[in-house]
């Protein structure tokens, strides 16, 4: 609990200290924490490489955009976004629950591509490639909302991990046969983990929709799923600190690359720079800090 105190302080004071731009960036960090908490449960603790997290975020974002435009207040539309994304998660779990390792990764990857195609093609509902706009929220309110959801998600993850389900997930990661022998049926555990991950992804998507005020299908592609995984791996797989550090890192990296771009030689097109830097950082961090920032901090 003590580790939450600095985060609570940031949450309470940031809107009074920081400029609007800073609040917005911190809000994105909070949103990525919510999404990352769900994915951490699935990938970091249950050990399942899920490559469709962006699809859940996308479903949540679209649900929020559609319901909000129809006049639902966000206290109702956000839970709806989470629930609906969980429903989609159930759909993803249908093939994925019996799979493990790389087959699980491919099944979720495929599912993500299909969801993205549905978002693109169901024009009557989603506006297709043109996307949807969504009404603005007051920046401070949005930040407090995102921040408190992020803290709640982190706290909830801690509670869940302390429960028998949490131990069963870790057992599934360490040795699925042994887990099954001890009565933790791995398909059931995978379905539960996917449902929770999808629900958190959906809520993060609802926040994301308000923050961007515009949603379109290509935002929620597989690169986003990989960025989220990258955030967890760089932060430190299987730790809660890693989610926070990873989210800070993921938001800070493009800013750092933006600074680099100002000093970039004009002869080289800057288009691929961000992607290249992402890849390089990922490769180097896995090589030299395989336990992530959280593990590196602990070793200091």
């Amino acid at each position: 609990m003590r580790r939450f105190i600095p985060l609570l302080l940031v949450l309470a004071t940031a809107p009074f200290i920081l400029p609007t731009w800073g609040i917005a960036q911190l809000g994105f960090v909070a949103t990525y924490i919510v999404a990352g908490t769900g994915l951490m449960l699935l990938a970091g603790y249950a050990g399942q490489l899920s490559l469709c997290h962006a699809a859940f975020i996308g479903v949540g974002a679209y649900t929020e955009a559609i319901l909000n435009t129809q006049g639902w207040p966000f206290v109702l539309s956000m839970p709806a976004a989470g629930l609906f994304a969980a429903g989609v998660g159930l759909l993803a779990a249908w093939p994925a629950r019996r799979l493990s390792g790389i087959a699980f990764a491919i099944a979720t990857l495929s599912f993500g591509f299909i969801v993205q195609e549905v978002l693109t093609r169901w024009e009557a509902l989603t506006g297709g490639n043109a996307g949807l706009s969504i009404p603005a929220l007051d920046p401070a309110t949005l930040f407090w909302l995102a921040g408190s959801l992020a803290l709640t998600a982190l706290w909830l993850l801690g509670r869940v991990l302390d429960s028998s389900s949490g131990r069963a997930w870790v057992a599934l990661r360490e040795d699925s046969t042994a887990a099954a022998v001890l009565g933790a049926s791995s398909p059931a555990m995978k379905v539960q983990a996917l449902l929770l991950a999808a629900a958190l992804g959906g809520i993060a998507g609802a926040l994301y929709a308000h923050q961007l005020r515009f949603v379109s299908p290509e935002q929620f592609d597989w690169v986003m799923s990989i960025e989220l995984l990258m955030m967890l791996v760089i932060g430190g797989l299987g730790t809660r600190t890693g989610i926070v550090l990873g989210a800070l890192f993921l938001i800070a990296l493009p800013q750092a690359i933006g600074l680099l771009r100002d000093a970039w030689p004009a002869a080289l097109p800057p288009a691929g720079l961000e992607l290249f830097a992402f890849g390089l950082v990922l490769v180097l961090s896995l090589r030299f800090a395989p336990a992530g920032l959280a593990g590196w901090l602990r070793s200091l």
Partner: peptide, 26 residues
Amino acid sequence: HIPIVMTTLGLGFMLKGGITMLPGAG
């Protein structure tokens, strides 16, 4: 396996970004 798979993804990002940065061709 997750860090190893992520490393291959990182390698892929580097290749794609690197090729995109080729002057006048990428």
